[in-house]
């Protein structure tokens, strides 16, 4: 989409499109189009949604106590042994997640740029939006918040960066989590970031059906309920953990 980057020089009255060129293989050809980028955003979004759901359910073992959560961490590490080497499943998941995040963010950035050019410099002096909701309007912001949060979350509990989580110790999963969630600043970051994720999912989990063209009178009315349910489940389910530590139910 280099075409919309030079808008003002077009002759007015008889706009002509550049010649459509189709080259390369199916996927590069598809990715060059905005719709192709939207498909990839939807698919990478589905991958990330599946991960965030499994991640949350697994981590609910926090409520079962120290032994349960730490055993779960070791189980994940050894998942698939001896067929898959130790850490194999974890690293395979990480690679998939890095790819999904990369695609989601790069496509979003390219589409945002394209849309800014297509909207142009002329702004309405007055504009009353009739349909768009808060979640839709803030997708880019909630996306950036969640992206930054992921870096914090990794520094806090995966990498154990000293100034983020000073009590962090390798393999002491339960203690690390409780130490983080007991810190009000850290707990606040988790709560706010997951509220942002909930908003992002409220629009994204519905929007993906439209982008993929999954539209049918048979299930259309379920799409909004699916998005609401998924967004609330993830936001409430994740926020419950730092809240439980803060109020003293866990830890």
């Amino acid at each position: 989409m280099t075409t919309s980057s030079t808008p003002p020089s077009r002759p007015v009255g008889n706009q002509q499109p550049p010649k459509i060129e189709r080259r390369g293989n199916v996927l590069t050809e598809l990715y060059r189009s905005a719709l192709g980028k939207k498909y990839l955003m939807a698919i990478s979004g589905i991958v990330l949604m599946a991960y965030v759901l499994i991640h949350m359910i697994g981590n609910w073992k926090l409520f079962e106590g120290e032994a349960s959560l730490n055993e779960y961490a070791i189980w994940l590490r050894e998942l698939g042994e001896p067929l898959i080497p130790e850490y194999g499943a974890i690293w395979a998941t990480r690679v998939i997640l890095i790819l999904a995040f990369g695609v989601h963010i790069i496509a979003a950035a390219q589409l945002t740029r394209m849309n800014q050019l297509a909207r142009g410099s002329g702004r309405y002096a007055e504009r009353h939006y009739a349909a768009v909701d808060f979640a839709g309007r803030t997708m880019r912001w909630t996306g950036v918040i969640v992206g930054l949060f992921v870096v914090f979350h990794l520094a806090d509990l995966t990498w154990g960066v000293q100034w983020v989580n000073p009590q962090w110790e390798y393999l002491e999963v339960y203690d690390n989590v409780v130490a983080s969630f007991a810190n009000p600043v850290s707990a606040g970051i988790y709560i706010l970031a997951n509220a942002a994720l909930g908003l992002h999912l409220y629009h994204g989990a519905w929007s993906l059906f439209q982008s993929m063209g999954w539209n049918s009178p048979r299930f259309n009315h379920w799409r909004r309920w699916f998005a609401i349910g998924f967004a609330v489940l993830i936001a409430v389910g994740n926020i419950s953990m730092p809240v439980a530590v803060q109020v003293g139910l866990v830890g």
Partner: peptide
């Protein structure tokens, strides 16, 4: 053909419904 021509002039949908 319609989509490729459309994208030469216009932006992309973010499903806002406006």
């Amino acid at each position: 053909n319609v989509v490729d021509t459309m994208e030469a002039f216009f932006g992309s949908c973010t499903n806002h419904g406006e």
